[in-house]
Design a protein around this nucleic acid. Sequence first.
DNA 1: GTGAAAGCGCTAACAG
DNA 2: CTGTTAGCGCTTTCAC
Lengths: 357, 357
Amino acid sequence: MSHDSDTGAIRREVTVADVAGAAGVAKATAARALGDYGAVSDSVRDRVLAAADRLGYRPNALARTMSTGRSNTLGIVVGDIENPFFAQATRGASDVASAAGLDFILSNSDEDPVVEAQAIAVQLAKRVDGLLLAPASSVDPTNLRSVIDAGRPVVLFDRVVEGVEVDAVIAANRSGARTATRLLLDAGHRRIALISTLEHDDVYRAGAMLTMSSVAERVDGFVSALADAGVADPASFVHLNARRDGVDTIARRLLTDGSGITAIIGSDSLIALQVFRVARELGLGIPTDLSLIAFDDADWTWVSTPGVTVMSQPIHEIGAEAARLLLRRVRGDVAPPVVRVLDQKLIERGSVAPPRR
Amino acid sequence: MSHDSDTGAIRREVTVADVAGAAGVAKATAARALGDYGAVSDSVRDRVLAAADRLGYRPNALARTMSTGRSNTLGIVVGDIENPFFAQATRGASDVASAAGLDFILSNSDEDPVVEAQAIAVQLAKRVDGLLLAPASSVDPTNLRSVIDAGRPVVLFDRVVEGVEVDAVIAANRSGARTATRLLLDAGHRRIALISTLEHDDVYRAGAMLTMSSVAERVDGFVSALADAGVADPASFVHLNARRDGVDTIARRLLTDGSGITAIIGSDSLIALQVFRVARELGLGIPTDLSLIAFDDADWTWVSTPGVTVMSQPIHEIGAEAARLLLRRVRGDVAPPVVRVLDQKLIERGSVAPPRR
DNA sequence: GTGAAAGCGCTAACAG
DNA sequence: CTGTTAGCGCTTTCAC
């Protein structure tokens, strides 16, 4: 047995023609046996397969795509695969894809429309059959348009894009935020802060247009719940740009500047984690001095002391359902676009209590 | 401006020939301008680029790969992208790849050699220029051999494969485990358990061959540290198959069956998380009743009460360095294979104290 | 600098 | 059932 592993060079590949030659049949016949299509007699098939095996034939998926036009591949563009939300959604989607016999290509957008455009270009260049996209911007449709114009099926997840009719799978963020906010309100809190890392040019003002629909919905649910409860100037309780300004900085300010904040909602679990730490550093007890609710049922929320009350999303299912919708399109379904809204679920643990004052 | 977004079908793509026609030049010339190679006069280039833009030309990366033989793509096969370890390593590798202008394809192996073989086949079929692999088995070289035989550069990460000389980036697991174990020993513990999810046919016995080198190294460091300290039958303190048997079941048994275990090392942060919870459910205080050390510096380990002492690995860098090594190979470097061993670092928090008895 | 033609590995259409 | 012949969209000689 000879290994030429010592040469770094890529060997000349064994092709259908080689196999055909070795098996003593025509190229097309070998191709049919190898590609498992068309009609081939058992005896010939066996001969071809044996030859292929002997020669170490490996199909060239690219050449196949070239002639069929189908790559048998789905693409996904996420904000950042390190974010547990995207990791789980990706896994959900990838499971559906591989169950359907499709391959999967992943790109990160860093939540930056420019990087996203590049990522999309790559995926289209590789001729993915369809694309899963968590759009970096819900207000600028340019990137989404580019894939639609290319004629590729696309399904959004986690966020929608305004003014573009396309399949999407999102969570019920507005009602989730309302529920979370009301839990705090019902416990007696009146000064509740919402912290998000979403970038925004300005201080948040009522009705301002936010660039990410999921966050916008969360903010909207939050503000409307406060308003319903008669809280004055609810918009002033929304704190954006937490990545730029630092979650810990914001949390620290909120908890020490006499603004009287008694409860905080973290727009994702990473934010809540930071708040949790700041509270501890400040010697503030949870939930005695501060009540806390996080979005997403992250691992740590049930080992912290106290456990953190969370608004949980069916993350896996968001990815899986998006992939299912995409599969339909890839298979030619031309029904009108649907937006699937999946429920969020409140999981109460120990981080909410009435405010001290 | 016309959008035929209403048709789900993939439109006939705009090709180099189309652009050439529109620009009034030969196909080859257009291709040179578009592909940015060869020599083209400025005026012609401008004309071609303008035409391309007008027609909405998008290069077909597959066709390009067909003729050049290079796909400009790196592949990675991980155990499970939902595992934070792999998510971080993947991100590290992906950043290096995209900085070098290469695309990135991801597959999950589920730590199953059969699934892994399939994943590798897919990547090779897509003609990736090189492959990053966290091999599902360190003792069965079949899958790794298949990519080497295909002549593709490959770099392993997190684990090595016995008997195969190939580039790899791993962590210093043996010494890390020794350090962690000694910390416990020095605190006075004598009955320390190590829990891992690694599958193994039997109860662990001294010198048994484990199928994943990273875990094998951890176990070896652990056992040798115990032996050095004069602990009798150190192998009996190793508990494998924790996925099959349930981490919580194992932990519960260890802590209630009178075996007198006073400290536990979790072979990854997910395991430690479960142990943490079981301890709490059992009403055991950490570190008063049980000392705990985890591998990997997960988020939750610094918000739990107490914080968990961890053996941290440079996960990002493992992925990044593996990608760098791979890039070299892809570029033709034929130097002998190297195995890069990155240090682990002990981060002491509050989960270790002397045993009660 | 530009053009014409061949070919990458595969599938598809059409004969036989 | 099997073979022949064209391409898929691009790059790459090799002429001019």
